[in-house]
């Protein structure tokens, strides 16, 4: 659904990723690992077209990214749920209203989705925080809220950037089981993480591909697990 073809990217003239080729197929499950600073976040931002590759091609749902235009990119983002590492919200709106935001933005009436929002909040363990403002949430709560927001439009692809970075092991497992369940429903999942325990845990349930970023290149890395 999302394909990167010999994509290169760098900041301030320094090449960070070079000639990456990666395909996210329907129903696939990927772990993206690599040391801090390897470019995992950058790669995810390329996938949701927040960054434009300096060379190479990105194809999203069969369409070349450069042909999408701004409205096309907005449309694409409704089909790709992203949990950003620095997950951000509208700080003046309650958590519930933040979850409703993707619905509003895509022209749907959030009131008819109230049950879905509540169910998602319960899933990520934030039922009691529904009316809290984002600045009142802890780091882990923000990550769970961001995951719930990424799922509200029932996207075809879920990209999560260190979604378990700030949560305890128990919550990590819960989030993982949520992502596994989504995967079973046929959605593609890609998780950037350096939590090897989480990967091991997942491998017991799903045929996940493990890809590793090193020196600006992607390599398959199943061996060390």
């Amino acid at each position: 659904m999302i394909e990167l073809n010999e994509v290169s990217y760098g900041y301030a003239g320094r090449t960070l990723l070079s000639d990456l080729t990666l395909g996210i197929a329907p129903g696939s499950f990927h772990f993206l690992t690599g040391p801090s600073g390897a470019g995992k976040t950058t790669l995810l931002k390329l996938c949701c077209l927040e960054l434009v590759p300096q060379s190479g091609r990105i194809t999203a749902f069969g369409k070349p990214a450069e042909q999408l235009g701004r409205d096309g990119i907005a449309q694409l983002r409704r089909r790709v749920g992203v949990v950003h590492q620095d997950c951000r919200f509208l700080d003046h709106l309650s958590l519930v209203e933040n979850l409703a935001l993707p619905l509003r933005a895509s022209g749907q009436d959030p009131h008819s989705y109230r049950e879905d929002i509540d169910a998602l909040l319960a899933w990520v363990g934030l039922s009691t925080r529904a009316d809290a403002l984002p600045p009142e949430l802890s780091g882990g709560e923000r990550q769970r809220a961001a995951l719930a927001r990424a799922l509200i439009l029932s996207p075809d692809v879920v990209l999560a950037d260190e979604p378990t970075g700030n949560v305890d092991w128990e919550m990590s497992l819960r989030l993982l089981s949520l992502l596994l369940e989504l995967n079973r429903m046929g959605k593609a999942v890609l998780i950037a993480t350096h939590d090897l325990n989480l990967i091991r845990q997942a491998k017991a349930h799903v045929a996940a591909r493990n890809i590793r970023l090193r020196g600006g290149r992607l390599e398959m890395a199943g061996a060390e697990l």
Binding site: C48, E50, A74, R77, R78, R88, L90, A105, L153
Partner: peptide
């Protein structure tokens, strides 16, 4: 600025 960024991230079109 952050509001614009968040809205774009969740798939809002410019017109919205």
């Amino acid at each position: 600025g952050q509001v614009l960024e968040v809205l774009r991230q969740v798939g809002a079109r410019d017109a919205f």
